[in-house]
């Protein structure tokens, strides 16, 4: 079994209206997901598609209304494993300010290991290594308030890495960043995946960020509506548009050229691919 697996996962939000009548809203509707160790998985979807709710299931911040979620063979509904699950599946959230606890970078990175009861010398080792890994060693004594958005997110990632997770779930980590911040964060995440073999589940609505993923899930109305390699997904430009998503300009251009009868391949992901294809025609 994979490191993360969900079977027929359903989640209903319960709200109470003005007359205190119970209303349910189905945020996740029968999701099956399987992630192998070391994979880089992307979950795409527009705002409100259920992707963040899904993320919160993967480390037991939420438990399913129906169906099951396993993390490394542990059922998230089993209370006795809750801290093991959260240690193994680290989570990075959207707003960089609202997840940094301490007023000094290194102390924030140490927060997770402290909670796990790691011995002091070991905490220092882990903090040093994690900060090194995200390239923030130079800022270890700084206040998080003085950092850019991208740097804050890297600190948040280091805070998760210091807990030595097997898997990191990033819930729209770049939504509040500028393009440079976005690049910084993605670079760090890819390095972690490549070098430390950490399984990554990236949740986003930026299409450019998923081109390097091993596998992509697209969500809409709580359901997985598309899945496949980035190339398979990106070759379906019209379907993506129907799900309120778009494709990178290069993919769109290739698609439109193809519509006009030019012989270019489906699902072009990079500028180079398109240029090569067009030059061969010329």
């Amino acid at each position: 079994m994979g490191i993360v697996k969900t079977a027929k996962l359903i989640y209903d939000y319960i709200r109470y209206d003005e007359n205190e009548k119970e209303e349910t809203f189905r945020a996740i509707d029968g999701v099956d997901l399987e992630v192998e160790p070391g994979q880089f998985i992307a979950v795409l979807g527009h705002n409100g598609s259920g992707k963040s709710t899904l993320a919160k299931h993967l480390n037991a911040l939420l438990v399913p209304s129906e169906g099951t979620v396993w993390l490394d063979n542990m059922d998230t509904r089993d209370d006795s494993h809750i801290w093991d699950i959260r240690q193994e599946a680290g989570m990075v959230f959207q707003n960089p300010d609202n997840q940094i606890v301490a007023s000094v970078v290194e102390e924030d990175v140490g927060f997770g290991p402290e909670n796990l009861g790691v011995e002091t010398p070991e905490i220092w080792k882990r903090v040093a290594k994690s900060l090194e890994g995200v390239g923030m060693t130079a800022y270890r004594k700084h206040s998080p308030n003085k950092l850019s958005g991208g740097q804050k997110q890297r600190v948040a990632i280091a805070g998760v890495v210091a807990m030595q997770p097997k898997c990191i779930i990033l819930d729209e980590p770049t939504a509040m960043l500028d393009p440079n911040g976005r690049k910084e964060v993605l670079k760090v995440v890819h390095e972690l995946n490549r070098e430390e073999k950490v399984t990554v589940i990236l949740i986003t609505h930026y299409m450019e960020e998923v081109t390097d993923a091993d596998y992509v899930y697209v969500m809409d109305h709580g359901k997985v509506v598309m899945k496949g390699t980035p190339r398979e997904i990106f070759s379906q430009v019209e379907t993506l548009k129907a799900y309120r998503l778009d494709v990178p300009q290069v993919t769109l251009l290739a698609h439109e050229l193809k519509e006009s009868g030019v012989d270019v391949p489906d699902g072009v992901l990079t500028t180079g691919e398109l240029v090569d294809a067009l030059c061969r025609l010329n």
Partner: peptide, 20 residues
């Protein structure tokens, strides 16, 4: 948000906690 982020990082009060 912060409460959730702290929970996700295994914060569960002072018991069993070490210090950096």
């Amino acid at each position: 948000d912060l409460a959730m982020a702290m929970e996700a990082r295994c914060y569960h009060g002072g018991a069993g906690r070490t210090q950096m």
